[in-house]
């Protein structure tokens, strides 16, 4: 690992100052993606700015009709949170399926979203629930947050502080895990709130995306049968040794049907 500097600030203002003063520094959340990347030489920041000393970035709070989850809340904390389990059980289920127990104890929701790994689980929930990303300077709607492979709308020195999830009437997340890593080969998050249906897919493209054709069909009638005639084009999807683009395209409506069935259960 390259030698670097390390900071552990105790206020958001200090994080912001350090990030502004050193454009080559990286924010460190749980470290479950950044530390392996440092070891592999995929990243060589000048410094790490550890957010671990900021307790105000941790925790889950119900605020009216939305659930606010602090950026430094671990996957295990989300999975076990009574508020999440009660109000958005699909989100607790998603968090309980990330990586393995040790990774869930360290990895954080903010770290996962800022990283925007194409096969990460959380982006599907953020997009599938129409959440809002809160930062030290603004609120970013989920629909304009994910920009591409490991690319988000965050400015280089911007600090993701929390995510606000509106409470859905029905929601479910179903993933087809890559068996070794349990990253999503394809994962689909569906939600129904009033007449609004959202279908968000992870694992299949450069970043998480919504599928208008599936949403429109489900908006007419929220039932698995509504999707029987729909096929997905494979031309823009990911292909790797675990699955071809055609295989991923096939999985999207299959997993969406399963998610709708679960959401209705």
């Amino acid at each position: 690992m390259p030698t670097l500097s390390y900071h552990r600030p105790s206020s958001i203002a200090e994080v912001a100052r350090l990030a502004r003063d050193d454009p080559d520094a990286k924010l460190l959340a749980g470290g479950q993606s950044i530390i392996p990347s440092l070891k592999l030489g995929l990243l060589a920041p000048s410094a790490l700015i550890d957010l671990g000393g900021l307790p105000e970035l941790r925790g889950v709070r119900l605020e009216g009709r939305s659930l606010r989850i602090g950026a430094m809340t671990s996957h295990a904390e989300v999975a076990n949170s009574p508020e999440v389990r009660k109000h958005v059980p699909a989100l607790a289920h998603l968090a309980a399926g990330i990586g393995d127990r040790q990774v869930r104890n360290r990895g954080t929701i903010g770290g996962s979203l800022a990283n925007s790994d194409p096969a990460a689980d959380y982006p599907a929930a953020v997009l599938g629930l129409g959440a809002e990303i809160r930062t030290d300077r603004r609120a970013i709607p989920a629909d304009s947050f994910f920009k591409g492979l490991f690319e988000t709308a965050l400015d280089p020195d911007e600090i993701l502080t929390a995510v606000e999830f509106p409470l859905p009437e029905r929601a479910a997340y179903v993933k087809f895990p890559q068996p070794a890593s349990r990253f999503a080969l394809v994962g689909v998050f569906v939600s129904l709130t009033g007449k609004s249906v959202r279908v968000a897919v992870t694992g299949a493209g450069p970043c998480a995306f919504r599928v208008a054709a599936l949403e429109q069909a489900l908006a007419k009638r929220f039932a698995p049968e509504s999707l029987h005639d729909i096929t997905m084009p494979a031309d823009t999807l990911n292909a790797d040794l675990h699955g071809s683009a055609e295989y991923r395209a096939h999985l999207i409506p299959v997993l969406t049907r399963r998610a709708v069935t679960q959401a209705l259960a």
């Binding site: 390390y6 552990r8 470290g31 392996p36 550890d50 295990a76 990774v103 360290r106």
Partner: peptide
């Protein structure tokens, strides 16, 4: 494995299991 896959390096930090090959010492101050 040194890649946070195998879990042979698992230790408890404040009673919670973590993979110690994937945690900086500075983070557990």
């Amino acid at each position: 494995c040194d890649t946070a896959s195998c879990g042979a390096c698992t230790v408890l930090v404040d009673g919670i299991a973590v993979k110690s090959c994937n945690v900086l010492l500075a983070q557990v101050q």
